[in-house]
C-alpha cells in the first residue's frame, strides 16, 4: 500500500505556481526525500500533504485519506516538523511536550513515558524545565523533532530536519530517523538541502525544481545514470565555458553543465574521455586552466537537473534560519 499518493497536485499563490501538477507515490515504510533549491515548492508540497493549505487543483491522499475532504483523519496519522520554530517560547520544553501529548490524546502515563523517551533521544532531559526562549537554535530544533515524534505518527514529515545543527547532533538525528523508519515502520518524508543527508538516509529521492519533479529514483540509480565520473574543467572566462559546452554538446556528450568559468562533464569512464576532451578544447582554441576528475555525487545530478548548485542556497538558508530565530528573541 502507498502511504502517500498525489495526483496532479497543484498550488498557486496569486498566479505564481508553487507546485505544478506533481504526481508522486510514497510506499508505506519508505524514507522519501524531497530535494530542491529554495522556492522549488518542497515546503508548499508538504504543507498541502499535511492539510495546512488546500491544493488549488489535483488531489492527494495520506495514509489512504484525502487531504482536503478527510483532513482530520490525515492529521491524526501524521507528525510534522516545520521549518521554522512552532514552539511556545514562553513555556518550558517540558510544558511544550506535555501540551502536545494532550492535544494528541495521549493518556497521562503514556505521555510521561514518551516525553522521557524523546527528551532523552535529543539529549534535552536536563534542560526540559527551562523556558524555550533561553534555548539555542539547535536546542529548539531538537525539541521540535522530539515533539513531532511523541505521538508515534504513521507518516512523519520533516522539513529541513537538521538545518543549522552541529554535525554530532545531526548524526544522532539521522540515526534516530532511520531507527524510527526501520523498527517502527514509520513512513518518513523529508526535505533537505544536504546531499549527504538525502544520499545517506533516503530510499528514494525526488528532485524538485520550479514546482515540478525533474527526477525521481533511488540515490544509487540517480548517480548511475551518468556513469561514474565527473570531469571538471576550469577555463579563463565564463564565455569560454559556454562556448566549450556548446562544442561538447555537438561532439555528443550528453551531460554537460556550466557554472561561471567551470564546465562539468558527467561521463562513464573518464580515462577514455579525457584525451578527447583536451583535443576538442584545443581545436576550438579554448585554454584549459585546470582539470579535476572525481567520482560523481548526488550534487552533480542535482546541478544537472536544476542548473544550480545546492550549496548556493545553503548559506542563504542558514542566515535566514538564524534571522528567524533571532527575531523570535524579542
Amino acid at each position: 500500500m502507498n502511504a502517500i499518493v498525489t495526483d496532479q497536485i497543484t498550488k498557486s499563490f496569486n498566479g505564481f505556481i508553487a507546485v505544478n501538477k506533481i504526481n508522486i507515490s510514497v510506499k508505506e515504510g519508505e524514507l522519501f526525500g524531497l530535494l530542491g533549491p529554495n522556492g522549488a515548492g518542497k515546503t508548499t508540497l508538504i504543507n498541502m500533504l499535511s492539510t495546512m493549505i488546500h491544493p488549488t487543483s489535483g488531489t492527494g491522499t495520506v495514509n489512504g485519506f484525502d487531504v482536503v475532504h478527510d483532513s482530520a483523519s490525515v492529521r491524526a496519522a501524521i507528525g510534522v516538523v516545520f521549518q521554522g520554530s512552532t514552539l511556545d517560547e514562553q513555556l518550558t520544553g517540558w510544558e511544550n511536550l506535555d501540551l502536545h501529548g494532550r492535544l494528541y490524546g495521549l493518556p497521562a502515563s503514556l505521555r510521561k513515558k514518551r516525553m522521557d523517551e524523546v527528551l532523552d533521544l535529543v539529549e534535552l532531559s536536563h534542560k526540559s524545565k527551562l523556558l524555550v526562549k533561553t534555548y539555542s537554535g539547535g536546542m529548539i530544533r531538537r525539541l521540535e523533532i522530539a515533539r513531532g515524534l511523541m505521538h508515534h505518527p504513521k507518516v512523519l514529515f520533516l522539513d529541513e530536519p537538521t538545518l543549522g545543527l552541529d554535525p554530532q547532533t545531526r548524526l544522532h538525528i539521522w540515526e534516530y530517523i532511520r531507527r524510527l523508519n526501520q523498527e517502527e515502520g514509520i513512513t518518513i518524508v523529508l526535505t533537505t538541502h544536504y546531499m549527504e543527508e538525502a544520499d545517506h538516509l533516503c530510499d528514494r529521492i525526488a528532485i524538485i525544481d520550479n514546482g515540478q519533479v525533474v527526477a525521481l529514483d533511488t540515490p544509487e540509480k540517480l548517480k548511475s545514470v551518468f556513469g561514474g565520473d565527473v570531469i571538471i574543467l576550469t577555463l579563463d572566462t565564463s564565455e569560454d565555458a559556454k562556448k566549450l559546452s556548446r562544442v561538447y554538446k555537438e561532439a555528443g556528450y550528453a551531460s554537460i553543465s556550466t557554472e561561471d568559468q567551470t564546465v562539468y562533464l558527467s561521463v562513464k569512464k573518464s580515462e577514455e574521455v579525457v584525451p578527447k576532451v583536451f583535443s576538442t578544447a584545443f581545436t576550438s582554441g579554448i585554454n584549459i586552466q585546470s582539470m579535476t576528475v572525481r567520482k560523481s555525487t548526488l550534487d552533480d545530478i542535482f546541478i544537472h537537473y536544476t542548473g544550480r548548485g545546492i550549496r548556493d542556497n545553503l548559506v542563504d538558508d542558514i542566515t535566514y534560519m538564524k534571522y528567524k530565530l533571532q527575531t523570535k528573541r524579542r
Partner: peptide
C-alpha cells in the same frame, strides 16, 4: 507570528 499556531492547527482536534 511565532509559529505556535501551526502546532495547534496541525493537531487532529
Amino acid at each position: 507570528e511565532f509559529g505556535f499556531l501551526k502546532e495547534i492547527l496541525i493537531a487532529p482536534v
